[in-house]
Amino acid sequence: MEKRPSTPSDTNGTPQRHADAPPGELGKLLQAAVAPQGELTPQQQDALEGVLEKLAKEQPAIVAQAVFRQEMFSGPIPHPQHLNGYDQTTRETIVAMAVREQQHAHDMGEKGLDGAIKKDRLGQIFGLIIAIFGLGAAAWIAQYSAVAASIIGSIDLLGMVAVFAAPRAFEMMLALKAQKAQQEEAAKKKPSRQRKK
């Protein structure tokens, strides 16, 4: 049994070379493209494109699929491949900085939340003191004038509603407006995506 060459050959059985691709150039381009850290230079990209275009015209069964790979990375530390490019001491320093920064962000968030809770709690305590004082004043004045006592009591209760209920209602109103605006924005983006397809 005779073995046939795996590359196209002429009538003599010697492998044919592609006109634009010297021996091994296509292999080098492909190896550079699939290497973990390899990237093609613009010249290599142009050469690979030319070789693949001619190959697709001459032998379409060979060029059946094109694969594109794009990698994006975001975070407090460099991409693992880039991080491995540093020496051990530098890597440890970079990771320690990221850990400290993350801990600082958590601490600041916790302090901000604790401050907001304390502020609300103090507001409630002082509001309760003022309400009790106002209702006490209204009760004391009621023995002299019922109309004046009812006015003071009403103002006191309206003040309590304004202090406690109104800000919450205002926050809810703002949240609903923001949610509605986001929904409108999402609705505007959907048709534009469909048109692009």
Rank of each mutant, 00 (worst) to 15 (best):
M172F: 09
A64N: 14
L122Q: 09
A162M: 12
E185L: 12
F133Q: 08
E101F: 01
Y144G: 02
A187G: 07
T11F: 11
A148R: 03
A116N: 04
I155R: 00
P5G: 00
S74L: 08
G13N: 03
L52M: 14
Q65I: 10
D156V: 15
L157T: 13
A138S: 15
A19K: 10
V63T: 12
A56H: 11
A96M: 10
T93I: 03
V63C: 05
K197L: 13
S6T: 08
M173K: 14
R17E: 07
L122S: 06
I62H: 04
P15W: 00
A56M: 10
T7L: 14
A178E: 12
I152C: 08
H18C: 09
G134F: 07
A169I: 14
K189L: 15
H18F: 04
P80F: 01
A56C: 02
N84H: 10
K54E: 14
P8R: 06
G159H: 04
K180G: 01
I130Q: 03
R168M: 07
A66L: 12
G159F: 11
G75T: 08
S192A: 14
I77W: 01
L29F: 02
A116C: 01
G153P: 02
M160V: 14
N84G: 08
A137N: 04
P36K: 09
L174I: 14
P42V: 09
Q16D: 09
A165W: 08
P5M: 04
K188S: 09
D87V: 03
Y86M: 09
E171D: 12
Q37L: 11
S150L: 13
W140D: 10
K111Y: 07
G134R: 05
Y86L: 11
V147S: 08
I155Y: 04
L48M: 14
P78L: 06
K57W: 01
T90E: 12
R91I: 03
A175M: 05
L40S: 10
P8G: 01
R91D: 01
I62G: 00
E53H: 08
P167R: 09
G112F: 03
T93C: 01
K177G: 03
V95W: 02
Q183D: 08
